[in-house]
Design a protein around this nucleic acid. Sequence first.
DNA 1: CCCTGCTTGTGAACAATTTCACAAGCTCTA
DNA 2: TAGAGCTTGTGAAATTGTTCACAAGCAGGG
Lengths: 214, 214
Amino acid sequence: MKRIADSTVRRLSMYLRYLEDLDTRGQQTASSDELAHLCGTTPAQVRKDLSFFGSFGKRGLGYPVHELTAHLREILGLQREWKVLIIGAGKIGAALANYRGFRQRGFTVAGVYDNDPHKVGQPWGEAIVRPMDALEADLNRDDAPIAVLAIPAEGAQAVVDRLVKAGVRAILNFAPTQITVPPHVNLKSVNMAMELEGLSFALTNPGYLDEGAA
Amino acid sequence: MKRIADSTVRRLSMYLRYLEDLDTRGQQTASSDELAHLCGTTPAQVRKDLSFFGSFGKRGLGYPVHELTAHLREILGLQREWKVLIIGAGKIGAALANYRGFRQRGFTVAGVYDNDPHKVGQPWGEAIVRPMDALEADLNRDDAPIAVLAIPAEGAQAVVDRLVKAGVRAILNFAPTQITVPPHVNLKSVNMAMELEGLSFALTNPGYLDEGAA
DNA sequence: CCCTGCTTGTGAACAATTTCACAAGCTCTA
DNA sequence: TAGAGCTTGTGAAATTGTTCACAAGCAGGG
Ligand SMILES: NC(=O)c1ccc[n+]([C@@H]2O[C@H](COP(=O)([O-])OP(=O)(O)OC[C@H]3O[C@@H](n4cnc5c(N)ncnc54)[C@H](O)[C@@H]3O)[C@@H](O)[C@H]2O)c1
Ligand SMILES: NC(=O)c1ccc[n+]([C@@H]2O[C@H](COP(=O)([O-])OP(=O)(O)OC[C@H]3O[C@@H](n4cnc5c(N)ncnc54)[C@H](O)[C@@H]3O)[C@@H](O)[C@H]2O)c1
């Protein structure tokens, strides 16, 4: 089984988004060229990405939109519902909990946790903020394999260790700090300050960069 | 002038974060090995990254923490203040506007814009929400070179075109859609649904991936 | 039924990035 | 001043990711 690059998975995700659009508009087929234009990549890249998982297209015609949508959903593991735990009932946590984009893709918020006694027990969107103490018991009862970490950097590693020990195998981290996890746990970090600093670098050193793409 | 990889810039940003920590703790020097461990990379990578910009270390000793911090700040363009415009006074916009991590690095929110008449004029953190109509005039008066886009995907490209026309040369986009800009404009997109889908893929296809790093 | 036009799937070439490996250089000690 | 012990800086090698180019294959028209 070949290793799939992270960049490939991100593109699959993007293909899916645009295929869903085309599908709801009733379009039957889409060529690699059309998909590439929609997603800001190249036709060869689209074909190569898809070819890792099978032959979904018809030569001369393109890819069947509806079928390919289903295939991509399966490849990405989106046929099922994923329960998501949000750790940290702060501003970022609040934005994420209400984010429509997650629910649309089958991610449902199974619980929100915080260690601030003033927040615990408060209603929070459709949920009620739960105490950190409840974490382990809740996980046994109803295991939520994806955790979103939205707490300050200081406590982040300790909470991650606890999540891992409790059986969580995927973590999306928003705290701006380096987190380490054992090899069987999947970790992704989003660091917004880093993105802004990338822009600062590009503006400051125009000579070092070529394109304005992203 | 050599092209600097995006991944290199991201790591520089991380080195800076940890060097600042070491500096406030009074540590004089740091070896590439120490930095690598802190940042989750390799010593060779640290040295190669830094070597693109000069020779900052002393053989046998390591890098002078305080000096290197200053160098990195300069390389990343962080000695100055960057004005940031937030477009979209919604949940994500609110979280970002109050994000301490931005101000710490010299990014200050110069204005928040929205097209919802109910939001325009309302106080919003320390600012007051301004109407989109005011954008062009405000930019002439006090040009803010970085814009953060926190509005729904539908209107995003149109607003970007308007920002570009008004002279904005760097955009951080949170709308989950493909945006195109002319070559002289720097665009970065953060797509959280894509990150979660990456985790879903990793959980679904454990055979395709090796490591749990990020 | 065959020919034309188009588009896929994919090995091979190419490009970018990371890792390796080691000479060069600094500091400290005797 | 010479030698030991570290650690940097950097070409070269290895690895990873992207682009090219074209044979193979399908559809529709004459
Ligand atoms: N606000 C943003 O735009 C933004 C952007 C990028 C990253 N971040 C990062 O996301 C994290 C959260 O940011 P925020 O703005 O939502 O902060 P916040 O202060 O609004 O919320 C943090 C919440 O986490 C809770 N908390 C703290 N320690 C905890 C622990 N050990 N266990 C459980 N809960 C704990 C606090 O009680 C609080 O409710 C921070 O690391 C921040 O750097 C924020
Ligand atoms: N909430 C999240 O966690 C989250 C996460 C990732 C991405 N996003 C994306 O960020 C964007 C904003 O999300 P949100 O949750 O803050 O939504 P929101 O509905 O809370 O806020 C959007 C704001 O943008 C304003 N707006 C809409 N169209 C506009 C236009 N043309 N010009 C100016 N203002 C306009 C609206 O009036 C509203 O105030 C969306 O594209 C969303 O998909 C949100």
